[in-house]
């Protein structure tokens, strides 16, 4: 068994096909099958003329994507985009400013506040639906933009946390130097802090975007006008239709999921290359 363990930093051990190793790799193949088979179905069904819930050899067609790109479905995608962009702006700008204060200022009871903010980020959003519905109905604003603002606010606790960590990583000396040079607080924020924690802010903004993009229940309840409904509600409509067209659902889900996958790859890059500021201070 000791031969099958490869310790990093050691010379690569001679490959021995031990029973343990074979078992591990077989299990890994099973795991891959478990994770990939629903995804493979989605891919195959989206280009199959007679797509069903079964995984079959497809008769290739692009017709399903034609349905996915029709006027109503594209409008839903546009609504999703609008919803996510507004929510991202509403969440990220105040969060960045607050995160700076949490990172640099002396605030009484700071740890308590931060801990409750962290707790808020874990509260399930579905419990807010009834009170928010009641408030929005009272204010007569059951529509897209107020819903976007609400969804932005639900992403705020986590965004504050992420950006605060990014600002914490910036050496104080840089700010001190700017302050000694008589730079104003606005100037310090714009010229010193913002450029340095941009990867953190971007990562938080992407989180806010994806969070809104994926949300299903708040738009369903809080937007009364069906013309303003975003993509998740459109997919729900597909699924509850009298005749379920699996091919079209698969194609549209694929189109709808692609931006999320791209944004996650961007975010992973930001996190990896982000907070290395060691060279700034000697």
């Amino acid at each position: 068994m000791s031969q099958s363990m490869s310790l990093p930093g050691e010379p690569v051990p001679v490959r021995v096909l031990s029973p343990g190793k074979v078992a591990v790799n077989l299990l890994l193949i099973l795991c891959a099958l478990f994770f990939l088979s629903p995804m493979i179905w989605l891919l195959v069904a989206s280009v199959d003329t007679q797509a069903s819930q079964q995984l079959e050899w497809p008769t290739l067609t692009l017709h399903q994507f034609e349905i996915a790109f029709n006027r109503n479905n594209m409008r839903a995608l546009g609504n999703s985009l609008m919803l996510s962009i507004v929510a991202t702006c509403v969440a990220t700008i105040p969060s960045s400013i607050a995160a700076y204060s949490f990172s640099r200022h002396k605030i009484p009871g700071k740890n308590g506040i931060l801990l409750s903010i962290l707790f808020l980020s874990g509260v399930p959003i579905s419990i807010l639906i009834i009170p928010i519905y009641q408030i929005f109905q009272w204010a007569d604003c059951l529509s897209l933009i107020p819903t976007a603002v609400f969804l932005g606010v639900t992403a705020m606790p986590f965004e504050i946390y992420v950006i605060k960590n990014a600002i914490d990583a910036i050496p104080l000396d840089l700010e001190e130097a700017a302050r000694i040079e008589q730079a104003s607080i606005v100037r310090i924020l714009v010229r010193v802090i913002a450029p340095l924690c941009l990867p953190g802010i971007m990562a938080a903004a992407i989180y806010g975007f994806i969070n809104t993009w994926g949300n299903f229940l708040p738009p369903l309840v809080l937007i009364t006008d069906t013309v303003q409904q975003p993509s998740p509600v459109a997919i729900f409509g597909f699924m509850t239709a009298d005749v379920v067209n699996y091919g079209a659902i698969a194609a549209y889900s694929l189109v709808y999921s692609t931006p999320v996958i791209i944004l996650y790859i961007v975010m992973a890059r930001l996190f990896r290359g982000g907070f290395v500021l060691g060279g700034a201070v000697k």
Binding site: C31, S37, P38, W41, Q54, M239, S257, I261
Partner: peptide, 26 residues
């Protein structure tokens, strides 16, 4: 594969799993 599965939107996951676990599914 595991990372891809956890970044997909919940609606897409529901679509895939609904189809994959119905009769005749994957």
């Amino acid at each position: 594969a595991a990372m891809l599965s956890c970044i997909l939107p919940p609606v897409t996951v529901a679509v895939m799993w609904h189809a994959s676990t119905s009769a005749g599914g994957v």
